[in-house]
Amino acid sequence: MSTAMNFGNKSFQPRPPDKGSFPLDHFGECRSFKDKFMRCLRENRFENAACRIESREYLRCRMDRRLMAQEPLEKLGFGDLEEGTAEAQRKP
């Protein structure tokens, strides 16, 4: 008698991430941005809303160095922080 539980022949089919691969920063090109973002998170009890500027800068660094696909920052949820956008102009 087999001790393994077999609930059928279904196998797990992994899916790639929606945005494609996310290469590691092997050369530490964006490490200072990551460290600043992580420090901000720790100082703010991991409330990511308090660290949006640091998050934006980290993602911008990754895009500039082709460590992730180029995306408009507005599409990534930073439209209100971008100069020249309608949302940013409405902010006092």
Score class of each variant (00 low, 15 high):
residue 10 K to S: 12
residue 12 F to A: 09
residue 13 Q to H: 08
residue 13 Q to I: 10
residue 14 P to W: 03
residue 15 R to H: 08
residue 17 P to N: 07
residue 18 D to N: 03
residue 18 D to C: 10
residue 18 D to R: 14
residue 18 D to Y: 05
residue 20 G to Y: 02
residue 23 P to T: 02
residue 25 D to V: 05
residue 25 D to P: 13
residue 26 H to W: 06
residue 26 H to G: 00
residue 26 H to K: 13
residue 27 F to K: 14
residue 27 F to T: 12
residue 27 F to C: 11
residue 28 G to E: 07
residue 28 G to S: 06
residue 29 E to Y: 07
residue 33 F to N: 12
residue 33 F to R: 14
residue 34 K to S: 00
residue 34 K to Q: 03
residue 34 K to V: 03
residue 35 D to H: 09
residue 37 F to P: 01
residue 38 M to T: 14
residue 38 M to R: 08
residue 39 R to V: 07
residue 40 C to T: 00
residue 41 L to C: 05
residue 41 L to R: 06
residue 43 E to D: 15
residue 43 E to P: 01
residue 44 N to V: 01
residue 45 R to N: 15
residue 47 E to S: 07
residue 48 N to P: 08
residue 48 N to M: 12
residue 49 A to V: 12
residue 51 C to S: 06
residue 51 C to D: 01
residue 51 C to T: 03
residue 52 R to V: 01
residue 53 I to F: 09
residue 53 I to Y: 03
residue 54 E to V: 01
residue 57 E to Q: 13
residue 57 E to H: 12
residue 59 L to T: 09
residue 61 C to M: 03
residue 63 M to S: 08
residue 63 M to H: 06
residue 65 R to E: 00
residue 66 R to M: 09
residue 67 L to Y: 13
residue 69 A to F: 07
residue 69 A to S: 12
residue 70 Q to D: 12
residue 70 Q to T: 12
residue 71 E to K: 15
residue 72 P to T: 06
residue 75 K to Q: 15
residue 76 L to R: 10
residue 76 L to G: 05
residue 77 G to C: 06
residue 78 F to N: 06
residue 79 G to F: 00
residue 81 L to C: 09
residue 81 L to Y: 02
residue 83 E to R: 11
residue 84 G to Y: 11
residue 84 G to E: 08
residue 87 E to Q: 10
residue 89 Q to S: 14
residue 90 R to L: 13
residue 90 R to H: 12
residue 91 K to W: 07
